[in-house]
């Protein structure tokens, strides 16, 4: 086997090239706007994108088993709206309880989806499309044409403003995100459950024959996704200091995009926590950076879309170049 040069290793690793892209981006923006790399700014970016970053972890697992979930923002809205209403009508007061309820709701929503996909053998795109309608509908039903504003949320909204979880160090929202990332990193790399996820995504038939309970793994993955969506429902309500039934509509594509940019394959079996993190960071840096370099915020989505297309096309082109080089090196 040929020894790979360091350069080849770096360009071959998606994660490595993303780090380089991120560094280049940050440098470029900082040149134009020196404030960009300030601690305050960085923390602000992280806080505002925490929801997408956390959900990207769940989507990572879903994509790893070769599935997809477009219902996540509906679950998020359903969970967030429910606790929003509970706060509004003084049914609950404690922040912890709010988070617990939202997360539990998300888990149940995800479980239902998982069972239908894994045991009902419904294709993920169809199942999650159906639930996208259903859960969003539930969110509207719970709202009853109302919404929960800042005053209704009381002390709940202060969650995002305080640093209590990390004993005063960093914002709570960011702490939650960091904890999630650490947990997922460990589970996916060092536990049997995590490796089974990769196995199912790489070759579900082989996994079945190996004795892995593929249906259980699939159900678990969608449940995890739902749990994170529920958690983010509470988080988003706190961050935006409001709960509305149309929270984060269409943002599920952002979550998927973060994973795709991060090198997660839609065919399953390939992708990493680091990749998802970098993908989400690249996206959030770009959106924050655009106005600072003079591009109107209105063009944000277009740029985001163009970048996604560019990334995936570039991926293909580099793969083709590598294949071509491989062929040319063959001695005939």
């Amino acid at each position: 086997m040929e020894k790979k040069s360091l350069l080849k290793k770096i360009t071959g690793s998606r994660e490595a090239s993303l780090v380089i892209v991120l560094i280049v981006l940050c440098i470029a923006v900082t040149i134009k706007s020196p404030n960009f790399m300030s601690a305050q700014n960085i923390l602000e970016i992280l806080k505002n994108n925490a929801v997408i970053m956390i959900m990207a972890l769940g989507m990572l697992c879903v994509l790893l088993i070769g599935g997809i979930d477009i219902s996540i923002t509906s679950t998020l809205a359903f969970a967030g709206m429910t606790i929003g209403m509970m706060y509004k009508y003084d049914m609950i007061e404690s922040t912890l309880l709010g988070f617990a309820i939202a997360t539990a709701m998300g888990a149940v929503c995800g479980l239902l989806i998982g069972v239908i996909i894994a045991y009902g053998k419904v294709m993920p795109i169809i199942a999650t499309m159906g639930f996208m309608y259903i859960y969003r509908g539930f969110a509207y039903l719970v709202a009853q044409d109302q919404w929960a504003g800042a005053d209704a949320l009381g002390s709940f909204k202060d969650f995002t403003l305080s640093n209590s979880l990390s004993f005063g160090l960093i914002n709570n929202t960011i702490t939650v995100a960091i904890v999630c990332y650490i947990v997922f990193f460990i589970v996916l790399k060092w536990t049997k459950f995590g490796r089974c996820i990769y196995a199912v995504g790489s070759n579900a038939e082989a996994a079945e024959i190996s004795g892995i309970n593929v249906a259980a793994i699939k159900t678990a993955v969608y449940t995890i996704m739902g749990t994170l969506a529920g958690l983010c429902g509470a988080l988003a309500t706190s961050v935006y200091a409001s709960a509305q039934p149309n929270m984060l509509t269409s943002k599920e594509m952002d979550v998927i995009a973060a994973c795709v940019i991060g090198g997660v394959s839609m065919n399953g079996g390939r992708g990493s926590v680091l990749g998802a993190l970098l993908g989400a960071l690249v996206l959030s840096v770009i959106s924050k950076a655009l106005p600072l370099v003079g591009i109107n915020a209105i063009a944000q989505n277009t740029i985001k879309g163009v970048i996604i297309v560019a990334v995936i096309v570039l991926n293909v082109l580099t793969q083709r170049m590598m294949d071509k080089a491989n062929l040319e090196s063959r001695e005939m």
Binding site: K192, R195, C196, Y198, A199, G201, S202, N203, E205, A206, A207, I209, S210, G211, I212, S265, G268, G269, R270
Partner: peptide, 17 residues
């Protein structure tokens, strides 16, 4: 019947790591 995206080690030890 193997896992193309995983390493040889993982393929050998899958399910009895």
């Amino acid at each position: 019947t193997s896992y193309p995206d995983l390493t040889v080690t993982e393929n050998i030890f899958m399910n009895h790591e």
